[in-house]
Design a protein around this nucleic acid. Sequence first.
DNA 1: CGGCGTTCGGTGAGTTTGTCACACAAATGT
DNA 2: ACATTTGTGTGACAAACTCACCGAACGCCG
Lengths: 222, 222
Amino acid sequence: MLTQPTWRAHFPGLGGISDDVSRLLDRKARTVKLDKGSIIFGPGNPAENLLLLVKGTVRVQQLSEAGREIVLYRVHAGESCVLTTACLLAFEDYSAEGIAETDVEAILIPRDDFDELMSISKEFRAFVFEAYSKRITDLFLVIEEIAFKRMDIRVAQKLLELSGEDSTLHLTHQQLAVELGTAREVISRQLKEFERRNWLTLSRGVIELRNPVAIKRLADTA
Amino acid sequence: MLTQPTWRAHFPGLGGISDDVSRLLDRKARTVKLDKGSIIFGPGNPAENLLLLVKGTVRVQQLSEAGREIVLYRVHAGESCVLTTACLLAFEDYSAEGIAETDVEAILIPRDDFDELMSISKEFRAFVFEAYSKRITDLFLVIEEIAFKRMDIRVAQKLLELSGEDSTLHLTHQQLAVELGTAREVISRQLKEFERRNWLTLSRGVIELRNPVAIKRLADTA
DNA sequence: CGGCGTTCGGTGAGTTTGTCACACAAATGT
DNA sequence: ACATTTGTGTGACAAACTCACCGAACGCCG
């Protein structure tokens, strides 16, 4: 589905952009809408465009041969999916996939126009490299966590991160396991232990935080 | 230590580069020599330049608060240290460091000249994005391995990778542990088990591969 | 409503990996 | 020759992962 671009309002990182760049974007960029659950890119299905997210979030995760998964990072509104552009075109044999976690609205910039933008706009270059930075530090963080941190701490952190203001989480143990790249049973046992301590209550598909402070205390035991 | 640039011969990826880019590189780039063991960048010591490696290898590794480490990737001659450029300038609070694993000779390109090159040369842009690709797929691979693969397999793979043609490895159990982001004892026990199977012999600081075929068979049990 | 397949969660048993504490051996320095 | 540093071996225990299986909750449909 195509509509006219509305990118100006959504990308503060591209604020001071010059007029010719604006014109190029207006002329070339197209916004698309994707339903929640759409697979945006994946093995055997490389991305052809740079994606600028206007609305929604995209989850990027890695698949193992044995069928296990781990969430690598999320792309939020106002951010871009740069890794796909640079990465996926050069190497096809990667095993990550991008999934629309909500309904998504995004601006597509074709490869050649991306290249042209990199050439003509200093602001665009800064925007792109900053996006890279963010992704790469995210990846470093993931590595640090799976390599060095205890599972109970990681579960506590993820619960807080996913709950935000709310104290009611709607997700299954399996989904939480994928977030952390571990097995479902490990999560079930951790959650049971937290429940035993009255930190939360469990019911099918729902985790109700009862004592976020205690959870935070554990999470901060970095 | 400064010498005149010799970049032309070393970067096939920059082969078809235009004359004005050549001139810019000749005028601005400077080569430096670093002794083995030098810390090229690290926490509290961000990189100021893009590095193009002419000779030697650079090891990039992550430090944990608890003092454990893991090797993320290596940069070889003919490659560039792009992550440092984009990444380290935007975020100072990262915890990776780059170490000269051998004596190293490299071309430094200051930040502003890097930006200019990105603007004027399509080849340079391709070179940079390909470098990004490689690094990022390396990181994906690391994540996949620490999250999903068995330790004995990873040790076997790493032994073969580090040995190359040679069958004698000069490294300590601790160094191998850092390669894989695990504890020294785990490595010691794995190696002992391999020795028991007559796959290798151990002496202080030396691992002698006796049956690389058997090791490879295990390593290929992906 | 009741039946039925599917998804979700709980749990025991066994294995692998990580942690801690320490002992000893080999290299190094003075 | 002796002390110090560095590398390795090991036992005991804790944490994490795997495998196998169970029953409960839910969605759907007749």
